[in-house]
């Protein structure tokens, strides 16, 4: 094993100060320009609920909401999230109460190994905000940027439908 003799300092690449609000909590962090949003969340903020599955913008395991939109955080630089809001799986549960999408995935057995689950749920949350009463096909289209290897999607579709139903009932109850 050849051992480096150079000093172990950072590379002198200019860093950028960013201000990002994640799940309602503001963070001021200095990052390299090339830091991917997913690594910023996982490494800088230690929020490891967001996963990395493919590196090529295919699998959606890294899906988070950036200013309310579902995006693949492995294909966004953290500097792009400066002054933005980010929502991750860790923020779904509020005051000890699960989000309907979390309940849906649990009730309908929408997860097995759990690795794609955060991305699936975040995609679904953004989707249901725009389409509260989706058809099965619309749900399938909505999650077609998220890969799951365990479930065959059938129960994920049911989970999202379950959440949609609960959210509609809650909304009607409030109205």
């Amino acid at each position: 094993m050849a051992v480096a003799t150079a000093p172990t300092t950072s590379r002198g690449q200019r860093t950028h100060k960013i201000h990002v609000t994640v799940n309602g909590v503001p963070h001021d962090v200095e990052v390299e320009a090339r830091t991917l949003l997913v690594h910023f969340l996982r490494e800088n903020l230690n929020m490891t609920g967001t996963h990395i599955g493919c590196d090529t913008t295919n699998c959606g395991a890294c899906t988070v909401l950036l200013n309310g939109r579902a995006v693949k955080s492995c294909t966004v630089f953290a500097v792009q999230a400066d002054q933005a809001t980010v929502a991750t799986v860790e923020g779904l549960e509020k005051d000890g109460k699960l989000h309907p999408i979390q309940e849906g995935f649990h009730q309908e057995h929408g997860l097995q190994c759990g690795f794609c689950t955060a991305g699936m749920m975040m995609t679904a949350v953004a989707f249901l905000a725009t389409n509260p009463k989706p058809t099965e096909l619309q749900i399938r289209e909505a999650i077609s940027g998220n890969l799951c290897r365990c479930t065959g999607y059938v129960n994920i579709v049911k989970s999202i439908d379950h959440a949609a139903r609960v959210m509609r009932e809650t909304a009607e109850g409030k109205a």
């Binding site: 913008t57 959606g60 899906t63 939109r69 579902a70 995006v71 693949k72 294909t75 966004v76 995609t123 989707f127 289209e141 909505a142 077609s144 940027g145 998220n146």
Partner: peptide, 9 residues
């Protein structure tokens, strides 16, 4: 084009 998540960006 690609998939719905990619289309958001």
């Amino acid at each position: 084009i690609a998939d719905p998540l990619v289309r958001n960006m």
